[in-house]
Design a protein around this nucleic acid. Structure first.
Length: 278
DNA sequence: AGACAAACCTGTCTGC
DNA sequence: TGCAGACAGGTTTGTC
């Protein structure tokens, strides 16, 4: 489901529960990503009895900081994960895996049908040292993307630009939807080898990536299916997508007579205009 | 380094 | 209506 704009939307919409105290942590008993053993004791140690102080985001990862705790809670939504709060008593939705009962009566829940998500702990102040975050590139929103870093990064990659952007090591946060969108905006063909891009075209792509993420964020993210904010609202950006999931439709560039095509790269769908992307 | 496949898991949609 | 198969927003792991 969620790429950077969706995860950032969740982060922002969690603000109403900042300052709330977690009374009790509940776990479904099922493991999450890669069936790694879920460490309930660690999650309790990081959050139970503590006040939610802040929520940060790096790439597609959320970090929940609880007051006075050395460990923070790291959350990744995978494909179908949701992190949202509920007002008062309510029936536990299917596929809920972690639940924080808050002292004010609300409940924070992580649910994830496919269980590709992740909930674990990491050391406060050493976030980037955590195994999941160590290989991530800069976060486009909080770190920005330095033009020469981005150009040099492309220069070092001998694979297609689609795959280079999808890999989180160059830039953290772009996923399958927004990579297609950014490449369309920059008029770059998805199979083009990253290192063959000129400095100018890299710069266009860098700017396009930032703009695509900003635009999606303004619309509260893209909900193709599962995604909802922490308040339970779907995002509106699916109505504004240029190429993603639009195979056979005309290129949104009114000057261009092209038709959107779908190809598969590394077992993942890519959408592009064969006419204006080179 | 990178290509490629498979793995993790469930839900939903398509075609016969 | 039923069933098999394909596919889905992500990441990791292993082999070549």
């Amino acid at each position: 489901m969620p790429e950077l704009p969706e995860v950032e939307t969740v982060r922002r919409t969690l603000s109403p529960i900042l300052g709330a105290k977690a009374e009790k942590v509940w776990w479904s008993g099922k493991n999450l990503r890669l069936n790694k053993p879920f460490d309930l004791a660690a999650i309790k140690e990081a959050s139970e009895g503590a006040t939610l102080e802040s929520v940060d985001r790096i790439g597609k990862y959320l970090i929940l900081y609880w007051k006075g705790r050395k460990q923070a809670v790291l959350v990744h939504l995978g494909m179908s994960g949701r992190l949202r709060y509920f007002e008062g008593e309510s029936e536990r939705p299917k596929h809920t895996h972690v639940e924080w009962s808050l002292k004010d009566g609300r409940i924070l829940r992580f649910s994830d049908p496919r269980r590709f998500g992740q909930v674990e702990t990491l050391q406060r102040g050493q976030e980037r040292e955590h195994a999941s975050l160590t290989k991530l590139g800069p976060d486009p929103l909080t770190d920005g993307i330095d033009p020469s870093y981005f150009y040099q990064g492309c220069k070092r990659r001998g694979r297609s630009i689609k795959l280079a952007l999808l890999d989180q090591s160059l830039v953290a946060g772009l996923g399958n939807i927004y990579v297609s969108e950014a490449l369309w905006m920059a008029k770059i063909h998805p199979t083009r080898i990253a290192k063959t891009l000129s400095k100018t075209r890299c710069e266009n792509l860098r700017k396009a990536s930032l703009e695509v993420l900003d635009r999606a964020l303004e619309h509260g993210g893209t909900s193709l299916k599962d995604f909802v904010s922490a308040e339970g609202h779907a995002g509106e950006h699916s109505h504004y997508l240029w190429v993603y999931d639009r195979e056979g439709k005309p290129c949104p560039n009114s000057e261009c007579p092209g038709v959107i095509r779908r190809i598969v790269q590394q077992a993942r769908a890519t959408f592009y205009c064969p006419r204006c992307q080179r």
